[in-house]
Nucleic acid binder design. Structure first.
Lengths: 207, 207
DNA sequence: TTGATTTGGAAACGTTCGTTCCCTAATTAA
DNA sequence: TTAATTAGGGAACGAACGTTTCCAAATCAA
């Protein structure tokens, strides 16, 4: 959003009063509100309080409530993807990578993180009919996850840790459902042990 | 709600003007609004229009918006459970019963029904923090599903169609996540073929 | 220094929300 | 018939919502 200009004078400070707040911290706060309360139940008052900004400032930085959400959503995806890829990179075989991905979601699906919930899953629920654009962002997020999982499965099939009889696309979609379902159930307050044993059971999908 | 009295004069009509609208039809309409829009985004105006009732009448029949939701929620559960049990009853072996249960959700997870979404999944998203009572109803619904699935798995283990090596509780929770995840992904508009192949892949959970 | 530009913040705005009130209609009990 | 009771419906209400406006503060360009 900042530094979009790539011409020679790119990094020069823009004119006018400089932004005083930390954008990432503000988005983290917005994220928290949106995922705990959902898009519609999150009010501007809650957002201003959590972000530590007056409504006028927010409306200058983002154009409206939807803009706050969409920006926070992109921020959320970026952070999540980074963490997920780090976990996957730590695994050696394809099967282990798949397991790490499942574990990533399982670890987010209990306790406080579980109760906060997933912004993408919440978005799928909040933008069913109207707002095609927001819904498209949700689809993009799901599709990226699904494709990543399919790639990991194929890696496993090449290194021999996953049977060639598995249909990578069908299994990837099944995993997508499974991991997003973990996040749904996680909102209802399950224990770490339950979620981890469900994750282990889920690995049967690549058998 | 009506006919709660079981004393001798049970079935006598209550005093005052009798209810003119069809309660089940009204709840069906409320259901549609709530699952398409979510609890918070569903306005009383939308509900009155869909239910064909004035706001005054609604507030007399249910005490408030929350009351409409809770009643519609119970109605939804009753209908769903009935359909689900019918499908399960049509299957002979435990494994086939599990498959029918998975198929039940897969068939609800594409096209129009998919876009409408699941009221229980939606409820899990809409009542995260506040409203402990509503959240408890969601937990009850999930738990019932999970228990039913665990029972079906045990049936399969007794009739020999599901390996005894499967942990029924872990697998049931995994199936719960998987089927609720189907409903989440179903909101984004997948094809019947995709969902059915995901359902088939999901059956690996009882392997 | 001056002017242009942008941010920060608080107050104010119009709208819509959930809810209540009140009057009329329909039914039972006496 | 009359009184009591409950449902139906629409108008009205206060509150909260998302948004806009306006002014002071901070920075850059000249």
């Amino acid at each position: 959003m900042t530094v979009a200009n790539l011409t020679p004078e790119a990094k020069t400070r823009s004119r006018g009063r400089p932004r005083a707040f930390d954008m990432d911290a503000a988005l983290d706060a917005a994220l928290r509100v949106f995922s705990e309360r959902g898009y519609h139940a999150a009010s501007i008052s809650e957002l201003t309080e959590a972000m530590g900004l007056a409504s006028g400032s927010i409306y200058k930085a983002f154009k409206d409530k939807r803009g706050i959400f969409l920006t926070a959503f992109a921020h959320y995806r970026k952070l999540g993807r980074r963490r997920l890829e780090a976990m996957i990179a730590s695994a050696k075989t394809g099967r282990e990578k798949v397991f790490q991905m499942v574990m990533y979601y399982a670890e987010l699906s209990y306790g406080e993180a579980g109760r906060k919930g997933c912004l993408v899953v919440g978005g799928a629920n909040d933008f069913g009919l109207l707002d095609e654009e927001a819904a498209a962002h949700v689809v993009t997020a799901f599709t990226a996850d699904e494709k990543l999982m399919a790639d990991l499965i194929r890696i496993g099939q090449e290194d021999g840790t996953i049977p060639k009889t598995v249909d990578p696309d069908a299994a990837a979609l099944a995993f997508l459902c499974f991991t997003k379902g973990l996040r749904v159930i996680g909102k209802t307050g399950r224990s770490r042990e339950e979620m981890l044993s469900a994750a282990e059971a889920g690995m049967k999908l690549v058998t």
